[in-house]
């Protein structure tokens, strides 16, 4: 059992929780993720490690209540426990093993979209602790969805906020802001790390390819085990099939087949729609023999 030590509402529908998980806290690195299973009947939910305290033995997760499971998770309070909390999974961010001298010479831009700001934060924090300066764009549809801005300001050299509707900061999407920085403010970047919705990562990668800036993205396909056993998380990178849970989740944004990944993310949409139906209609929803809801 893994106890929730802290719970905070960061923005509308976006929660941060500190979970007591000493083994994970001891060995995790930025870029990795965990799998949470709330209780006996819960799904295995992959979530990025957003911060960790090795001494206190806690790991922070930030999640957006978007569907059945994450909504249920939002109802958990401090002192409640998750049945399972497995990790760290996936590879650590490539920056961590890069030669410090090389890294020092580089100018790095992080691009965070929506709840993707959460996984960007530990990486920027790590860079800050090692003495590197990086810039960070935080983008969201509107002001209410901007998270971790204050925390980010403490660890990044420059934080630029961009909202689609202009309700806060720069008016426009993150790509507009990248162009603004490079074209109008004369900024130069050697590497971009973009984490957010797939569609955002796709368009950032198209832009940075034009600008000639190497780009890393963090993919979040559907997962089951997270250990390389099922292949649900497969995606195509540079024409090769990779398993995001063991080969990633970070990949070269200029090589990822984003369109395929976007389609694969939709795979259980109708299934989950049925879950909501089930909630509404109760037992009458059960039909089609097995009652799994997938065969009618």
């Amino acid at each position: 059992m893994f106890t929730i030590r802290k719970k905070e509402l960061l923005a509308n529908n976006i929660y941060l929780m500190d979970i007591e998980a000493p083994r994970v806290a001891k060995s995790c690195h930025p870029g990795q993720f965990v799998i949470v299973k709330m209780d006996e009947k819960g799904e295995r939910i992959p979530l990025t490690i957003c911060d960790y305290d090795r001494e206190a033995g806690t790991v922070a997760i930030v999640f957006q209540a978007v569907g059945e499971s994450t909504k249920r998770m939002a109802d958990y309070e401090v002192g409640d426990t998750f049945r399972d909390f497995s990790g760290p999974l996936g590879c650590k961010s490539e920056l961590i093993d890069e030669d410090p001298e090389e890294l020092k010479k580089k100018s790095i831009l992080f691009v965070a979209g929506g709840v993707g700001t959460a996984p960007v934060y530990p990486q920027v924090k790590w860079m800050h602790e090692q003495g590197y300066n990086v810039d960070c764009i935080i983008g969201a549809r509107n002001k209410d969805l901007i998270i971790l801005e204050e925390e980010m300001k403490k660890v990044a050299r420059n934080v630029y906020v961009a909202t689609d509707d202009g309700s806060y900061g720069f008016k426009g999407n993150v790509n507009d802001k990248i162009k603004d920085l490079v074209n109008n403010e004369g900024k130069h970047y050697d590497h971009v790390i973009a984490i957010g919705p797939i569609i955002m990562m796709k368009f950032v990668s198209i832009l940075t390819k034009e600008l000639g800036i190497p780009t890393t993205v963090s993919m979040n396909p559907i997962m089951v085990d997270g250990t390389g056993m099922c292949g649900a998380c497969r995606l195509t990178v540079g024409g090769e099939v990779k398993f995001a849970c063991v080969d990633g989740p970070e990949f070269d944004g200029h090589l990822v087949d984003f369109d395929e990944s976007m389609k694969r993310q939709q795979m259980y949409k109708t299934q989950e729609g049925r879950e909501i139906l089930k909630e509404k209609e109760g037992a009458t929803h059960k039909n089609g023999g097995c009652g799994c809801g997938g065969n009618d």
């Binding site: 009947k41 499971s69 089951v224 259980y268 299934q271 059960k286 997938g294 065969n295």
Partner: peptide
Amino acid sequence: LMKAFDVSYDTPIVAGK
């Protein structure tokens, strides 16, 4: 493992026709 055949479990499965 995830007991998708049992509706009381959360994990979905695309069963197929």
